[in-house]
Design a protein around this nucleic acid. Sequence first.
DNA 1: TAGACATATATCGGTCCGATATACTCATCC
DNA 2: GGATGAGTATATCGGACCGATATATGTCTA
Lengths: 197, 197
Amino acid sequence: MLELAILGLLKERPMHGYQLSRELTEQLGGLWKVSYGSLYPTLKRLEREGAVEQVPGTSAGTGRKRLVYRITAPGERLFIKLLEEPPSDTQAEDARFRIRLAFFRYLPPETRIRLLDRRRAALAERLEAVKAAIAEAADDGDDYQRALMEHGRAASEADIAWLAGLIQQERTKYGITAPVGQRRRASATLRRKERTA
Amino acid sequence: MLELAILGLLKERPMHGYQLSRELTEQLGGLWKVSYGSLYPTLKRLEREGAVEQVPGTSAGTGRKRLVYRITAPGERLFIKLLEEPPSDTQAEDARFRIRLAFFRYLPPETRIRLLDRRRAALAERLEAVKAAIAEAADDGDDYQRALMEHGRAASEADIAWLAGLIQQERTKYGITAPVGQRRRASATLRRKERTA
DNA sequence: TAGACATATATCGGTCCGATATACTCATCC
DNA sequence: GGATGAGTATATCGGACCGATATATGTCTA
């Protein structure tokens, strides 16, 4: 979600496209590189939608023409909406979640915990799927495919543990106790029926 | 690289679109879900390019019409080419590398080691970038952004260790010793100048 | 003062995704 | 017996993002 990332940066201060690209790469430690082929069209779209607007008269002497944008009030609302938006349940959410986290400070603690927990549940589900696949492909097979799945399992487990740590930290800091009904859910297998019902 | 994945599966036996989608999800332990919106157009493209062809007369009684495809000789060559193709140096390579690995058995040991090592070098580079970002953002800051980067660092390190293990295994199995000039490179920081020169 | 390099915006083609449409088969239940 | 719904199967559409590329202009330095 480039929109989310752009709005998050503009929230801090007005910037132009090129600057946004560098800040983005930098703030996320190079984990997420934006391409200009996405950036500029997205900026234009946001402007068309009224979420950002150009700051007039900022090409002040300093070299080349620059189109400086700032976030608007509707843009602020859009930002929060995008930040809380439910995940797309796909591998793209891996990247999206990182963006979300980079702007987590704009969310209240309760919401943060809710999102962290939702993410943890999604990873737990993936973990179960991988474990099932490992069990199934136990003897039929390809060494590399097995290694791949084992690695997927280890990575999922590490991510889940990491999230659990973040949740714990958040709870300790704000003295929020875990809702009882929610705890099991996160680590238990979610059957498909249960979710669609 | 959907093309790669499709060709890899068709190499084992002829299949139709729907079947490919399920096999793909299954063989990779649900780590990689294909959408029909990619699958069918890609199949058509591959057919247009002569890499696959329809197997005539296989709608044999069993229910619905099915378009069964098989790989051709040019398709086999394309498959190997795609499998060895240099990485796109982006976050997309994370996913691509998994696909590659799933079909690694079709490559000779030397090539496998070369690709594993290339991947390891890329991750080592990313690791250095993240470490630099962590150092830079040490005090200015957002707790969540720091957590994010730390997690990126840990994940990179884990991945590198995993790759090192795979390389070691491969070398042991086939008695191939590491080229001396290549060893340092993998774990050392690669300066930008050095690469572009 | 020429060259390389960083800054800055923009477009193009291509890949993939999610949603949706369509249609057929088969089992189940009333 | 006929409705309902789940699974199978192919296909298209709009949208997001990427990588490559084009095109300027400013700045540093040899």
